[in-house]
Design a protein around this nucleic acid. Structure first.
Lengths: 234, 234
DNA sequence: ACCCGCTTTCATAAAAATGTCACAATACCG
DNA sequence: CGGTATTGTGACATTTTTATGAAAGCGGGT
C-alpha cells in the first residue's frame, strides 16, 4: 500500500539515508534533497505528501524553507516536519510559528520519526466529515463504516462498502465498469473489468434484504446504475 | 491521569503553545489547530472533551466555529470556551449566545484558563467526572479502578482499563489504531500500531464473561468499535 | 542487582478480502 | 428458434489484515 511520498532534506547523507530507509520500510516512498534550495524546488515541482526538513542546512535553512512553503499557496497545504539539534523551547515556537506541523529534536529514533510522520499525515489528511446517507430505508454511515437496512446491520467487504458509497453519492446514472474501477478503486489500477461484476454481485447479496438489491440495476452493454427509489419504478 | 482531551485552536503558535503546556501540566491531553477550519474538522473527527477557540482566527472565526459545532448534533454536546481580546460586554453575549460554555478575555493567566476548563468540564459532566459507567451489565468505576460484570469483579492491566474507559465514553464509533494510541496512550507516545491489537486482545479476554467481549468489534481495515448493546443486535 | 508486573515487539497462525477464472444463465438479434 | 454477446455465480489462489502466543524491554520496588 502506498503510504505516500515524502521528501527528506538533510545535508548529511548518513542521516537522510537513515531516515529514508526507515520510512521506506514503513511503506513510504522517499526522495532526497541535499540542501534547502533544492528542497524548496522539489517541493514545488513534485508536491510530496510531506516534507521533512533539517533546520541547519546550507543555502537555505529548514526554517526559511518552511516559511516560504507556507507562504506559497501552491504548497501551504503540504505538511512539514522540522528536524533540529536544538532543544530550546524558543526554537520550537519559532518552528511552529513558521508553520511547521511538527518538530523533532535530534537525536531521534527512526521509529519515532516514522510515527510522527504517520501522525502528521493522519491529522492533516483524511477528514471524513461525512454525515450518514440514507436511501429507501438503507442507512449508510461512512464514519463508522456501518450500513443498515431498516435498522438491521448488514455486512460487506470494504470494497463493496466503497462501491455502495459511490452509488449513493451518484444515483440514477449509469457507470461503465471502467468508470467504476477508476472512481471506486482509484486511478492507476490494472484490474479486469469483469471483476466489477463480482463486486456488484457481492454488494447485491449484502443488501438483499427487503428487495434492496433491486436498487442496483444492470444496464446491458453499458454498466450499472443505482436507483434509490427503485420501489416505485417496479 | 487522563483528565481529558482538549482541542486548542489559536492561530498564534506562541499562545497555543502556552495554553497547551499549562493544560498538559494539569494532566490534560491537547491537540492544536491553526485556524477555524481545521478546528471544526478536528472537532468533528476526533470528538475532544472540550474545545478552546480563539475568536479571531483566519478562515473561520471562533464564533462561527462555535455556532456550527452547536448546530451539528454530532458535536453540540462538546463544551466550548471562547478566547477573545475584546472585553466588550456585547461580545460576551454574542459568544454565549452562539452556544459557548464559557468566555475568557485575553490576556489571561494560564492558571485561570485551566481552572475554567476544569469548571466547564465539571459542569457539563465531562470526562473528568468520576461517576461509574455502565453498559449491558458491565459496571465500571473509574475512581476505584474496579470493573465488574454482573457484580463479578474482573481484572485487567492499567492500559486495558483506560482503553475500556475510553470505549465506554465513546461508544458506537470506529477508532483507528492510531486514534486509540493518541487518545488512550496519550499524544506524545510513539509506539507501533499493532500494539493496540495486543491490548484489545487482553481487554477482550478480561471481559469475556457472559459474551461481553463481543462488545468490542473489529472493523477490518479501519480499527475497532465498542457497541454496548451489541448483544441485542445479534 | 534482582524480581515482578506490565508493556511492547516480534513471529506466526488464522481469518477475511480480493481478483480471476470457468461455466451457467440470460438477454438480444436476426 | 438458434446463435451470439453479455452478465451472473460459485470456486479458488493469492494477498492483506488481524489474532495470538511468546519473548524481550522497562521501571519500580526491595
Amino acid at each position: 500500500m502506498s503510504g505516500g511520498f515524502i521528501l527528506v532534506a538533510d545535508d548529511e547523507p548518513a542521516i537522510s539515508e537513515l531516515i529514508c530507509t526507515s520510512l521506506e520500510m514503513s511503506g513510504f516512498q522517499t526522495r532526497r534533497a541535499a540542501n534547502g534550495q533544492i528542497a524548496l524546488q522539489m517541493t514545488i515541482n513534485d508536491r510530496p505528501d510531506l516534507v521533512i526538513l533539517d533546520w541547519m542546512m546550507p543555502m537555505l535553512s529548514g526554517l526559511e524553507v518552511t516559511t516560504r512553503l507556507k507562504r506559497d499557496e501552491r504548497t501551504s497545504d503540504i505538511p512539514v516536519i522540522l528536524l533540529t539539534a536544538k532543544a530550546e523551547e524558543d526554537d520550537k515556537i519559532r518552528g511552529l510559528d513558521a508553520g511547521a506541523d511538527d518538530y523533532v529534536v535530534k537525536p531521534f529514533s527512526p521509529r519515532e520519526l516514522t510515527a510522527r510522520v504517520k501522525a502528521v499525515l493522519r491529522r492533516s489528511g483524511g477528514s471524513d466529515t461525512e454525515k450518514p446517507l440514507e436511501a429507501s430505508g438503507l442507512q449508510f454511515d461512512p464514519t463508522n463504516l456501518v450500513c443498515r437496512i431498516n435498522d438491521q446491520p448488514v455486512t460487506m467487504g470494504p470494497t463493496e462498502f466503497r462501491l455502495l458509497e459511490f452509488f449513493l453519492r451518484h444515483p440514477n446514472r449509469v457507470y461503465s465498469r471502467s468508470q467504476l474501477l477508476d472512481r471506486v478503486w482509484g486511478g492507476n489500477v490494472y484490474i479486469d473489468d469483469r471483476t466489477v461484476d463480482v463486486h456488484i454481485r457481492r454488494l447485491r447479496k449484502a443488501i438483499s434484504v427487503d428487495d434492496h438489491e433491486r436498487m442496483i440495476q444492470t444496464v446491458r452493454g453499458a454498466g450499472y446504475r443505482f436507483s434509490p427509489d427503485f420501489k416505485s419504478e417496479v
